[in-house]
Write a protein that binds this DNA or RNA. Structure first.
Lengths: 116, 116
DNA sequence: TCAACTAGTTTGTAGTGCAAACCTATTTGT
DNA sequence: ACAAATAGGTTTGCACTACAAACTAGTTGA
């Protein structure tokens, strides 16, 4: 039961969100009002450069907002997700759910579990 | 409740599978023993060239097998998923499930339930 | 003063996805 | 018989992307 889950929907996935690094960023942002650049750098494991460029793309796409200020005398960059960002993320999640229905479940043929 | 669903797992996603076009191909292959190139071309909506190159990558990665033969006098290319391909797909699905737990659900601001 | 650190941005490059052009053989039209 | 069209793909060319290395600008410590 449940809908067939049209797998061709996978082709409609938002590439801006689909990129793992950016999806991670959005997911983290969705759970807080304001997130510091440095914090994101640590939880994501991304290099500063990489993070910076993904940040710019998300900002250019209107999915996040970037606020630059100072803490004491040092620069501080903070990110927050926009309403459009939340929508994009929720939409992406919905599509993922649809897509997952088109992928056969773990199959679980034997009891062994191997991972690498 | 339910496990926290470590969102950083998103960084470990298999890029060979993560690409929408290839995920679609794998999903289709997982539901049949042997699939014709032309059929795949139609259901995916991919151009022949694009399909061909994704096919090559999946083959190079050992996720599918490509069998070339003739039907009557015309060339016929058929694809089938390998055991490694099935494992990769199942593994990807598992990771996706984990990742989805890290993405906030549809937000459901009101009580309405929308399905489409 | 000068080295080292903080907080990011810009640059360079290898790799990717995509469609257009191409290829070879077969079939159809005249 | 010969040209044009079609089938079934592959190769090429290009615009774009993710990533790390190199860079910039200000700050703190010695």
């Amino acid at each position: 039961m449940s809908t067939p889950g049209d797998i061709t929907e996978v082709m409609a996935l938002d590439r801006l969100v689909h990129e793992p690094a950016r999806l991670l960023i959005l997911a983290v942002l969705s759970g807080a009002k304001l997130v510091e650049f440095g914090f994101l750098e640590q939880v994501s494991g991304l290099s500063k450069g990489n993070l910076s460029s993904h940040m710019s793309k998300l900002e250019a796409g209107g999915l996040i907002e970037v606020k630059k200020s100072f803490r004491g005398k040092r620069p501080l960059t903070e990110l927050c997700i926009t309403p459009a960002g939340r929508r994009a993320l929720a939409n992406y999640r919905r599509q993922l759910a649809t897509v997952m229905q088109g992928i056969p479940a773990p199959a679980a043929p034997t009891k062994r579990r191997r991972e690498e």
